[in-house]
Nucleic acid binder design. Structure first.
Lengths: 104, 104
DNA sequence: TTCTCATTTCAAATTTTCTTAAAATGTCCT
DNA sequence: AGGACATTTTAAGAAAATTTGAAATGAGAA
């Protein structure tokens, strides 16, 4: 992941509502959740949910697919993995953040 | 690191200028850099630098100390470590981001 | 087709964040 | 004390992000 992408991912997560959405989707796993359920669980307006979830989508942190008349959102683990790798490589030089290592 | 702190750290890094400041300080290492040098290297106004560096400071991502009449800023690795740990633990459940493991 | 339901799009209002320049603070030197 | 330098503080305006509600789209059911 390069700096512009990392910046986009950081900005996407740097909002209370969006971080909550992402965490809910991570917790939910690969089946994801329809927009309406996310909005209901987090008590936010539908159009507000769309706004935030699209922000996450642009950053690759969320995947969208249709199931009948509902849109299912799933956490995008690759992007999160990329962000963590970016932070580890670019912001932890000099062994200062040595406790983290890649194993696979 | 808890969610409010993680949110603060994410917001602090989610800006082009602040990410550049932080990366510069990581690259520089434990000696850090005086405010003026950072501002000069990144070509930003002094007061603008203060604004951004304070944002990083509030999030614990930067440390401040005085040397004569200049203020030295140093990257705060503990906070970055905490952020990476938060993301790994809260946003990568279910082995989806398994490639990252703690070793120390 | 027509009626719902689920969601998104749009535009306006609001709020938050960022930039800028001028004035203030703190330190060192003479 | 008085002057010069490094940085911060302040206040104003500019720019960007967020919220809201109403209207539009897309899909399934009658």
């Amino acid at each position: 992941m390069d700096s512009p992408n990392a910046l986009q991912a950081l900005a996407a997560l740097a909002h209370e509502t969006r971080l909550a959405i992402f965490r809910l989707l991570v917790e939910t796993g690969p089946d994801g959740l329809p927009a309406g359920v996310i909005a209901e669980r987090l008590a936010i307006a539908p159009s507000s949910l769309t706004f935030h979830v699209q922000h996450l989508h642009r950053a690759g942190l969320v995947t969208q697919s249709r199931a009948g008349r509902q849109l299912i959102y799933v956490a995008g683990f690759a992007a999160m993995n990329g962000l963590i790798a970016y932070l580890t490589e670019n912001c932890c030089q000099g062994a200062a953040c040595a406790p983290l290592q890649r194993s696979a």
